[in-house]
Write a protein that binds this DNA or RNA. Structure first.
Lengths: 196, 196
DNA sequence: CTCCCAATGTAGGCACTGATAACAATGTAG
DNA sequence: CTACATTGTTATCAGTGCCTACATTGGGAG
């Protein structure tokens, strides 16, 4: 019988994928470093070599989430048509779709951000995401499809809407079969509100 | 030296107020039943007589929060003027104001709602709040200040906006001095979007 | 090639948590 | 006055995150 090698090989990655799985299944509250170690077949203290604290692991997970979301949105932007409405709808949909597919992850991503000790890379990731949305708005303004005004101010309702819509979906306030029509309604309302 | 009486008097209420205080100061994660008991000057197992589990205490806190928020919104509605825009702005502002003043509480209120075992009274409280907003919309429709359509559908962007705006504020994405102008911007955008 | 050392894993223990069971004090209904 | 339900207390359990000391490994310097 071949014994398990002393060194795991890539414990860090193994922990992360396993953690995301249990996060998806049972939520962040149920995530335990010890149990994670148990499931990965490693000693209880082993994870500490890769993640100084439980929070550090959660941060790493959140960071990964931001990366995935950002690339998804960039791809959606490239894939969308020329018209502002198209791009707008495209970005909104991919955001919401990511949110529904990765509910717990997104919750984690935003839960972590308004606490004091948020790491720099996390904050940077979030800003990158925000910039994406802002550039969409300035583009719309240049085409005359969005009313004028400072971007930071105009962007607030958009952010709020995205954030709020996903919150509604995650919280179960919106049934899955209502999501599509709610999205339509919301996008239409935003476009009317943003019209010059 | 007078010894502390065996019976506390109103432990349940004492625990709740103390719990809300620490919730406000240190967030829900740091809330510990044992510490609560310690601060209240009572044995570690005493709280279990009033709250079967930690979750039960959090639920009670959330329920209290919903009650307070609902009454605040009802009062705001009564205080507001006749015009739809007035009422709309009034409700939005009180909601956001409650959110900023009771950040952690509100987070708790919504965190609990999308988990399986949410108690009935909590769910009922949330529906009461939702009905309030919906009735605002139907009233607006009757006055011809809001486009027609099913209320449940029209209400979604409003809920999303409220939820999202508070999320932005709580998360620190909006600086306190930006809140007022963001609110103005958002309310105006919503009114344009809702216009017939 | 060898030896040393940094990286990675293990063993054990500490302080803390929430939960539960068995027991004690209290106040009250009959 | 007494039986009893309520509300505290004590003790204990399993589980957690984190820390220190030790073991094993593999790769780079000589």
């Amino acid at each position: 019988m071949k014994t398990r090698p002393y060194h795991h090989g890539d414990l860090r990655a193994a922990l992360l994928t396993r953690a995301e799985q249990t996060l998806r299944e049972k939520g962040p509250a149920e995530l335990s470093l010890r149990e994670l170690a148990r499931e990965t077949g490693v000693s209880p203290a082993a994870p500490s070599r890769h993640f100084r604290s439980k929070q550090a692991l959660l941060d790493a997970l959140a960071l990964e989430g931001f990366d995935r979301l950002t690339t998804a949105m960039v791809e959606a932007h490239d894939r969308a048509g020329e018209s502002f409405a198209d791009q707008f709808a495209g970005l909104t949909r991919t955001y919401v779709s990511f949110a529904t597919a990765n509910a717990a992850l997104l919750e984690l991503m935003y839960a972590r951000k308004h606490e004091a000790g948020a790491p720099d890379d996390l904050i940077a990731s979030m800003h990158r995401l925000a910039d994406l949305a802002m550039s969409l708005i300035t583009a719309g303004q240049q085409r005359g499809e969005i009313r004028e005004g400072p971007v930071e101010r105009l962007a607030v309702p958009l952010f709020a809407m995205l954030q709020g819509l996903t919150a509604l979906i995650l919280s179960g306030a919106l049934q899955p079969d209502q999501v599509e029509e709610s999205l339509d309604e919301t996008i239409a309302l935003l476009l009317r509100g943003y019209a010059p």
